[in-house]
Design a protein around this nucleic acid. Sequence first.
DNA 1: TAGTTCTTTCAAAGAGTTCTGAAAGTACAG
DNA 2: CTGTACTTTCAGAACTCTTTGAAAGAACTA
Lengths: 182, 182
Amino acid sequence: MTAAAHTFQEAELLIADAVGEVIEHWGFRKPLGRVWTVLYLAGDALPAATLSERLSMSTGAVSMTLTELQEWAVVRRVWRPGERREFFLAETDLWKMISKVVSERERFWVRSVRERMEQACVLLRTLPTEEGKGALARARVLLSFAQLAENVIERFLTSRRADFTGFGVLEKTARTAATERR
Amino acid sequence: MTAAAHTFQEAELLIADAVGEVIEHWGFRKPLGRVWTVLYLAGDALPAATLSERLSMSTGAVSMTLTELQEWAVVRRVWRPGERREFFLAETDLWKMISKVVSERERFWVRSVRERMEQACVLLRTLPTEEGKGALARARVLLSFAQLAENVIERFLTSRRADFTGFGVLEKTARTAATERR
DNA sequence: TAGTTCTTTCAAAGAGTTCTGAAAGTACAG
DNA sequence: CTGTACTTTCAGAACTCTTTGAAAGAACTA
């Protein structure tokens, strides 16, 4: 292997593992982030064997991971004329990917939390005791937090990027990237 | 047990489990959320035995959970004159709690992700190949996302509540009860 | 001091999750 | 149809995380 190829794979692994952590923090398995990252950085479709090699994963693990990534529409399968094996290509629109997960997973989850809190408030309202009244007041605070979260998600999904405009690193940096100085 | 007490505990468990899930989603153990919730809803200090009873947890689990909650300054220990056992009281300022976690945990974590991405970009800059240049461009996109996240966190911590003003369920309902401003 | 009551600790059990790799499945070429 | 190349599946292994409960510890009382 050339020195350049070695450097490339070092950087690749560094980013793959970082993304793996992020994605794990978000409730997915680490390998999903790692595999997606390798495909994303490649900028081109790659066969499963390459992924297995570069990330030291078994064929089984790669296969399962690619299946899951395709279910989330974050990777897609492509055919190469003349090639027998299949290639995999990463989705590149990050906002689209994030929206999809928020919309298909977070949304229902937060709603269920909010609903259970409402249900609990209904129960607490029937209580005449001092303890019951106090608990109701506090339960309502928690409920309002759940509602806040639901609102934020709803707005995010309609506005496509919530109110992150103004935090705007993206607008500037994504193009020029004057960031890594060392 | 009276009917009212039964209703109370049903509601309590409903909320405790919902909060447990939320907190688990946020990377903590479920029992932390459950125990905190019981204390919070009680609005008063409670002995460990009560928690163990109401949440069906072993004494050991309750003790460990309370220790962790105290480390996060989300519960504190209270001494009652004439009582031999100790009582535990929930912190009620939700924003304060959230800020603390973001500040002491998320902040460093996101920074480490961003740093690794910068490091990877530095490596990729040295590559003359087409593959290397393309990967660098894409790595910079990921880096800018990490920077965005870091910015959001930073702003959240300085503004105490990010730009959630305008999503404002909280202004109506919660402010009076939960959040006394600083 | 000894006795009582409550709390903490931690080794081991238990539960849950993820990965491996061999075998089965699929698809294509000759 | 048969052989080859590749992919998927899934039972079991390996691993991680959590909880239990008994014993040690601590704090107070008499």
